[in-house]
């Protein structure tokens, strides 16, 4: 009963719109604070790596992006399940707003990874298992985005994309492990992956700070996108007119 009420209240667009508006400055401020602390710790305080020199510092962008690429997909798929089961409008908005953000995180993880790969591996791209599954994840994101915008009716597009996101969730582990298995068999002689050294605290703290900053950045962007999307979807509703008139 209470859960149903919570759902109802949280799922109501005007309520969410106002709540998100109140939360936005907090998220944005916390994001900037974490980002500043993480970048300072990572780029200035942390010592250079004994093997990789200064170029390892890209992990402070790369690793959080890669984590976020999976996290955002999970959020999107969870919202997809909510869309299909309870037809909650707000979950459609969140899933729709998440897809491009997640795709950008995936793209950033790929780009920073290949920039790091050039000095380390001597090439921008290798068909390494992780790189390949990240690339396929990007394709999955692009499919979801394509499907969302392919339908004229937004709600149909959102529900179709929800099905695809859920199919992707079943497939992501299969793709991940098959790619990993494929690569172990085809392991090239030119590239040997460096053993992951246990990370020192002076590098771990900024990395975790950056991870928190990326999460907050996602939350901030998500709320902003969801708010504007809600205004557009509900442009004929009374609460939007009141909201605009209040400005």
């Amino acid at each position: 009963m209470t859960i149903a009420r919570l759902f109802h209240q949280f799922g109501s667009p005007p309520h969410f719109y106002r709540l998100a508006g109140r939360m936005l400055p907090w998220f944005a401020t916390a994001c900037v604070a974490c980002l500043a602390a993480g970048l300072y710790g990572g780029l200035v305080l942390a010592p250079p790596d004994y093997q990789q020199g200064e170029s390892y510092r890209i992990i402070f962008i790369h690793v959080p992006s890669a984590w976020m690429s999976l996290f955002v997909y999970m959020v999107m798929a969870a919202c997809g399940a909510i869309v299909l089961i309870w037809r909650m409008k707000l979950a459609e908005v969140v899933a729709q707003a998440s897809a491009p953000i997640g795709a950008s995180f995936t793209f950033m993880a790929l780009v920073t990874g290949s920039l790091w790969g050039k000095p380390m591996w001597g090439t921008y791209w290798v068909w390494d298992a992780r790189l390949t599954s990240e690339l396929i994840l990007l394709f999955l994101y692009l499919g979801v985005i394509g499907l969302q915008s392919a339908y004229e009716d937004r709600r149909t597009g959102a529900r179709a994309a929800a099905v695809l996101a859920l199919v992707g969730v079943v497939n992501i582990p299969i793709i991940h492990y098959s790619v990993e298995w494929w690569n172990t068999l085809h392991q090239g002689p030119t590239v040997t992956k460096l053993d992951k050294p246990s990370i020192h605290l002076s590098m771990l703290v900024p990395l975790l700070l950056m991870a928190v900053a990326f999460k907050l950045y996602y939350a901030t962007l998500l709320l902003m996108r969801a708010r504007s999307d809600l205004l557009e979807r509900e442009r004929n509703a009374a609460w939007v007119r009141d909201e605009v008139a209040a400005r």
Partner: peptide, 8 residues
């Protein structure tokens, strides 16, 4: 775009 990644 939808199907090929799932075929991998």
């Amino acid at each position: 775009l939808l199907v090929l990644p799932l075929y991998v």
